[in-house]
Design a protein around this nucleic acid. Structure first.
Length: 872
RNA sequence: GGGCGAUUAGCUCAGCUGGUUAGAGCGCUGGUCUCACAUACCAGAGGUCACCCGUUCGAUUCGGGUAUCGCCCACCA
């Protein structure tokens, strides 16, 4: 390499131009385009489709860096790889966003109507949906863009229809009246997984329900007094001695004129509250079941908007749940029926998407019957055909699947796959793959399609095979399905992984993927969950902008160690940036020497012990990287590469090699060529951009590092490696003495090695020049006599003497050290004395107390001030 | 109420199946702008590996328990 080209090799790595150049190169040359007809073994992954609701965040960075590492390595290992991209329409998530946008115009979705709303939703999707796709390119992801899918596109839509109809035909889909989680704001049913429970400080109200004759009665405890207006019974446990005499009697429901029975049911706990529970079958899942068992009426007293219905006394009609609660409590109090109020903490279900308190409502919905689907889905994990990593997640999955309940799949939303069910005037229900034109029963043509759409996860569940063309037996499907790997956050194991597994087994008869890696949850610096809505956390785009993609990816891999979570903040990415810079500069050093050098690895007999040592370390690194990637312990991979490249290759071997390079020695050039070639290859999956750039700068050959084959261990002999280890120890020992004794950097001392090990003596003599440079000594002599005024460093098989007499004032330095030792002893004694002095401890305690009291005062004053402000 | 994870240096974290002086990065101290890199180099300080009991020749590592923190699941009105 000429002087001129070195001037184009700046001493600091600048990621921007490199990243832009190479991603375009890879994409334009079809490096990511899979060929299903290839005879090579296949390796495939489908992307966890990002929602079209936003832009790249930390979760995406993880979900996509890790698969990209696998894809790139497999490609280099000779596999035909496919990584299939796409996005998810994210039903309720997107709909809520669009509604928020409309709200700014002062409109609701009902003002626009279904058609216009959908037009706006698609508009929104076009605008924001592709943002994330661009950003995945910036992350360097080797996605096959020619196979891009969207969960609402025709291919996916056909799969959804097919799946629904097949479930229906097998009797696994039914429509039924059940208590569902209802979001009054979104005006839709939700599945259990879309409800987030939040602890809330509330009260437990004890209400007296008098007997029909107006006397005595029964006291019930409730957290939701407003629902009493819909009570149709009071239940007690059949074993409960306190109530046995009254079971069957009638109570007068306060605030209404209705009479309700006292019934006995197993579901009632005797030791909660008063042991008597009000039963509201239309608004509580347990009460619903009690109601079924006892044939109770269901009074729907809260409507779809969360307001009181016409079934309650006029004064409450139209009130919100909260208003009604206050009114009911006030009225009960006025009538003397409120026995007592206790503070009570319980969890309240809220809508995962909009945060509104959910209302359990009895309502007609479509369900998937889970029991028959769960069985095979349990089996494949028990048998290890699908494996979760880290292993503990297998149990989490299995526990859920073993207790799974039927899946509510209908949503009263507009954005999504419309349920393929039509109702005819004649009462016929038609479930069909194609939109029917007439009723097969009465041949009438006034058919009405079900208004509802499917849960967004219904289509996601089909993703791994729907994207490959299922139900068609496409060539992609035959070649690339099932997929090999998936990685996600822990919190979609049930929503997504589980549903993909049973759907895939049901429809394709095969597992959807083999290995599932559940990655850590990323927390912010204070250990709080990262949340975009709260605006805290790390923005990967900012990181990429600031530190570069490779630095971002390397840091992510370095921290991903199969733990439950880890903390992340912007400065942590300096680790990756500094490492990238190190790699860059090391290449800068060797570039003029190894470009155009021999491509053959030298005969092992021509290598020195130093060469064997570094080759051995390289080989260990290859092994650790392979093992680490295969077991998804990404941090061990990044650590192995970091340690080897930085601390062995750069800190030691390059220093060993400099002199030999200057003399133009061919062997060291060839060794370095192969070490750098292999290192860049090992690094490439994690740091694709910088390695591609350096691959070309070092003229490693071919169109791309991606087309080179994955490195294997190089030939090395291990018998002389111990000599190198000892040499490093000796150099370190000499450096330590020099630093401790304040030997000026510029002065050199002789060193004398005393050893009975002939081979070691010979080796040290051979490497004299190297030792002289690295330890800053003037000569390496072999001898057994320790000169007076010399420092000594002792090892098991040798001693090293450093005559310091002529170089520094030994007595003075020793005196200094002695004084320091004395001084330290004095300090320690003083601390010990203070710590054993009760007076001191008492004073210290008082100081702390005083400080805390002052802080307390400060806070109290501020609190008062703020309170006043709030009141004003 | 059940399940799972964590507790290692000032901070954030590694540490596979038990084995000499327990590691890294950042931070700190001292010394270097040494001809790839100051986004660097050299040296150093700093840890009863939460606590208790057990298994073992030997435990940070395995088992049991305690404490603290965190996550997940669950219909307790």
């Amino acid at each position: 390499m000429s002087e001129d080209s070195l001037s184009n090799f700046p001493p600091r790595y600048d990621p921007k131009p490199v990243e832009e150049k190479w991603y375009r190169f890879w994409e334009e040359n079809g490096f990511f385009t899979a060929n299903p007809d290839s005879p090579k073994p296949k390796f495939s992954i489908v992307i966890p489709p990002p929602n079209v609701t936003g832009s790249l965040h930390m979760g995406h960075a993880l979900d996509n860096t890790l698969p990209d590492i696998l894809i790139r390595r497999k490609k280099m290992q000779g596999f035909e790889t496919l990584w299939l991209p796409g996005t998810d329409h994210a039903g309720i998530g997107t709909q809520v966003k669009v509604e928020q946008m409309l709200a700014k115009e002062g409109k609701s979705r009902f003002d626009l109507g279904r058609e216009e709303f959908l037009r706006r939703a698609w508009e929104w999707k076009e605008k924001y949906g592709n943002e994330i796709v661009k950003q995945l390119r910036r992350l360097g992801c080797g996605l096959d863009w020619s196979r891009f899918r969207f969960t609402l596109d025709e291919v996916c839509a056909r799969a959804v229809r097919e799946a629904f109809v097949r479930y229906y035909e097998r009797g696994l889909i039914y429509r039924g009246l059940r208590i569902v989680n209802w979001c009054p704001r979104c005006r839709t049913a939700l599945s259990d997984l879309e409800v987030k429970y939040q602890e809330e400080k509330s009260q437990l109200w004890y209400i007296r329900y008098p007997f029909a004759d107006g006397r005595d009665g029964v006291v019930v405890a409730t957290t939701r007094p407003e629902t009493m207006l819909g009570d149709t019974a009071v239940a007690v446990n059949p074993e409960d001695g306190r109530y046995q005499a009254v079971v069957g009697k009638m109570l007068r429901l306060p605030l209404t004129e209705r009479l309700i029975p006292i019934i006995a049911d197993e579901a009632v706990e005797m030791d909660f509250g008063t042991g008597a529970v009000k039963v509201t079958p239309a608004h509580d899942p347990v009460d619903f079941e009690i109601g079924e068992r006892h044939h109770l009426k269901r009074l729907k007293v809260i409507d779809d908007d969360g307001r009181m219905t016409a079934l309650v006394p006029a004064k409450y009609q139209g009130m919100s749940r909260e208003e009604c609660r206050r009114a009911v409590v006030d009225d009960l109090k006025a009538q003397g029926l409120l026995e007592k109020i206790e503070d009570y903490e319980h969890s309240v279900g809220t809508c995962d998407r909009c945060g509104t308190a959910i209302e359990p409502l009895a309502s007609e919905q479509w369900f998937v019957k889970m029991k028959p689907l769960a069985e095979p889905a349990i089996r494949v994990v028990e048998e290890g055909k699908v494996r979760f990593y880290p292993e503990r997640w297998n149990k989490v999955y299995l526990d859920w699947m073993r207790n799974v309940k039927d899946w509510c799949i209908s949503r009263q939303l507009w954005w999504g796959h419309r349920i393929p069910v039509w109702y005819c005037e004649c009462g016929k229900v038609i479930v069909a793959r194609q939109d029917p034109v007439e009723c097969p029963a009465c041949h009438g043509n006034s058919l009405r399609q079900d208004e509802d759409v499917l849960d967004t996860w219904f289509s996601s569940a089909l993703w791994p095979f729907a994207t490959m063309g299922w139900p068609e037996e496409t060539v992609d499907y035959r070649s690339f399905f099932p997929t090999d790997f998936l990685t996600t956050d822990p919190d979609i194991i049930f929503r997504w992984e589980a549903r993909m597994i049973f759907s895939s087994l049901e429809f394709t008869g095969r597992i959807p993927f083999v290995d599932v890696y559940i990655h850590s949850t990323v927390l912010d610096k204070n250990g709080a969950r990262m949340s975009r809505s709260k605006g805290v956390g790390v923005d990967p785009l900012e990181i990429i902008e600031h530190y570069g993609t490779d630095a971002c990816r390397f840091t992510i891999a370095y921290l991903e160690s199969q733990s439950q979570s880890y903390r992340l903040w912007n400065e942590r990415f300096e680790l990756g940036r500094n490492f990238a810079n190190k790699v860059w500069n090391a290449c800068r050093l060797v570039a003029p020497h190894i470009t155009g050098s021999s491509r053959d690895f030298p005969d092992p007999n021509a290598l020195t012990a130093l060469d064997h040592w570094i080759v051995m370390r390289f080989n260990e690194t290859v092994e650790r990287v392979d093992k680490g990637i295969d077991s998804y312990t990404f941090s061990t991979v990044a650590q192995a590469l970091y340690d080897f490249f930085w601390h062995d290759l750069c800190d030691w071997y390059l220093e060993f090699a400099k002199r030999r390079l200057k003399s133009g020695e061919e062997t060291v050039k060839a060794v370095l060529y192969h070490l750098f070639r292999g290192s860049l290859q090992l690094l490439h999956p994690i740091m694709p951009f910088i390695t591609e750039e350096l691959w070309h700068r070092l003229e490693m050959g071919g169109r791309s590092i991606l087309e080179s084959s994955w490195p294997r261990p190089l030939p090395a002999k291990l018998d002389k490696v111990r000599l190198v280890e000892r040499m490093r120890d000796v150099i370190g020992g000499i450096r330590q003495v020099r630093a401790e004794m304040r030997v000026p950097a510029k002065s050199t001392v002789e060193c004398i090695v005393n050893t009975g090990d002939g081979e070691l003596a010979k080796f040290f003599k051979e490497q004299e020049l190297l030792i002289r440079e690295l330890a800053k000594v003037s000569a390496v002599n072999i001898g057994a006599v320790r000169p007076s005024g010399s420092a000594v460093v002792v090892f098991s098989d040798c001693e090293v003497y450093l005559p310091l007499a002529g170089v520094i004032d030994v007595e003075k330095e020793l005196e200094r050290l002695r004084r320091e030792v004395e001084e330290l002893k004095r300090l320690i004694d003083e601390i010990d004395r203070r710590l054993s002095n009760p007076d001191f401890l008492e004073r210290a305690k008082n100081e702390v107390i005083e400080r805390e009291q002052m802080r307390r005062q400060e806070f109290a004053a501020r609190r008062e001030r703020l309170k006043k402000l709030l009141e004003a």
